[in-house]
C-alpha cells in the first residue's frame, strides 16, 4: 500500500510539473471546450427550452454545469498512446514494474489540475458578460457533482482504453475514436438537455453509457432533480461491463506488440 502511495505521488508530481510546461497548450484545449456555452446561446434564444418545461435559469445552469463537466472529463489517451507506440516509447514503459496505463491516468489527472485556473477564468468571463448567470451549488450537490465528474471521467477513460487497445491491430484506431465521439456529442446531453429529447430517443440514449458522462453530473451540479443512486449505479455497471473486455484486449494487444518485435 505504501508502495502504491509513493508511486502515485511521484507520478502525479512529475506529470503535474510536465503539464505546467504545456500550460499554453492546455489553455487552448480548455478554450476549445466552449461548445456547451455556444449551445447555451442557441437554446436561450429559442423557445424550445420553455416548451420542454425548462426555465431560462435552469437552461443556463445546466449548460454551464455541462461545460464544467466536459472540461474535466476530456480523455486524450488514444492520441498519446498512438504516438508512443509508433515512436517506440512504449517499450521502455513495458519494462517497468508498473502498467503503463497508470502513467497515462496520472497524466490525465494532472492535466485536469492544470486546467482548473483556465476554466475558472472562462467562467469569470461568462459571469462578467452575463451577470447573475453564475451560481454556487450547495455543499452536498458540489461534493456529489465532483464525485460524479470523477466517475464519469473514469468511465470515459475506460471506454477509450477499449478503443486504444485496437491501436495494436489497426493504424486507424484514432479514426474509430472519432466515430465514437459522434454519439457522445449528441446523446450525452452536451448539445441539448436530455429533458428536451422525445421520450423514445431519451430511453434509447439512457441505454447507452453517454448520458451518464455529461447529463448526470451536470444535473447534479445544476441542482436539477436526479436519481443519485441510479446515476452512480449506472456508471459502476458500465465500468464493470467494460473493464474485463478492456483487460482481455489489452493483454492480447501486448502479446501481439511483443510478438511483432517491438
Amino acid at each position: 500500500m505504501s508502495w502504491a502511495w509513493r508511486v502515485a505521488r511521484a507520478l502525479l508530481g512529475s506529470q503535474y510539473a510536465l503539464m505546467l510546461e504545456y500550460r499554453a497548450e492546455i489553455a487552448l484545449w480548455a478554450l476549445s471546450g466552449v461548445l456547451p456555452l455556444i449551445m447555451l446561446g442557441v437554446w436561450s434564444g429559442s423557445g424550445a427550452g420553455a416548451a420542454a418545461g425548462l426555465s431560462p435559469q435552469q437552461l443556463s445552469h445546466y449548460f454551464l454545469a455541462a461545460f464544467v463537466v466536459r472540461q474535466f472529463t476530456v480523455v486524450w489517451l488514444i492520441h498519446v498512446f498512438e504516438e508512443d507506440a509508433l515512436q517506440g516509447r512504449l517499450s521502455p514503459f513495458l519494462l517497468q514494474p508498473l502498467a503503463p496505463l497508470w502513467r497515462y491516468l496520472a497524466a490525465h489527472l494532472s492535466e485536469q489540475a492544470t486546467r482548473v485556473p483556465f476554466v475558472l477564468l472562462m467562467l469569470g468571463v461568462v459571469g462578467l458578460a452575463a451577470p447573475g448567470v453564475l451560481w454556487w451549488p450547495s455543499p452536498g450537490e458540489l461534493v456529489l457533482g465532483l464525485l460524479a465528474i470523477l466517475a464519469a471521467f473514469l468511465l470515459r477513460f475506460l471506454l477509450q482504453i477499449l478503443v486504444t487497445t485496437l491501436c495494436f491491430w489497426s493504424e486507424r484506431a484514432a479514426a474509430l475514436d472519432r466515430l465514437l465521439l459522434i454519439p457522445y456529442l449528441f446523446l450525452s446531453g452536451l448539445v441539448a438537455p436530455l429533458d428536451t429529447f422525445p421520450p423514445a430517443v431519451r430511453r434509447l440514449a439512457l441505454a447507452t453509457p453517454f448520458p451518464w458522462m455529461v447529463d448526470f453530473p451536470a444535473r447534479l451540479l445544476a441542482g436539477e432533480p436526479v436519481n443519485v443512486a441510479l446515476g452512480f449505479g449506472a456508471i459502476a455497471a458500465w465500468c464493470l461491463l467494460l473493464w474485463p473486455i478492456a483487460h482481455v484486449l489489452w493483454r492480447a494487444g501486448l502479446r501481439r506488440y511483443s510478438a511483432m518485435g517491438a
Binding site: W43, G45, S46, A48, A51, I182, F186, V191, A192, T196
Partner: peptide, 22 residues
C-alpha cells in the same frame, strides 16, 4: 452521416418551441 443526423436531430429539438429559430 452520423454528424448530419445528430445535427438535424438537435435542430429539430430547437424547433420544438416554435416555427422559427431567430
Amino acid at each position: 452521416l452520423g454528424n448530419l443526423a445528430g445535427s438535424l436531430f438537435v435542430l429539430q429539438l430547437l424547433f420544438a418551441g416554435g416555427p422559427s429559430l431567430g
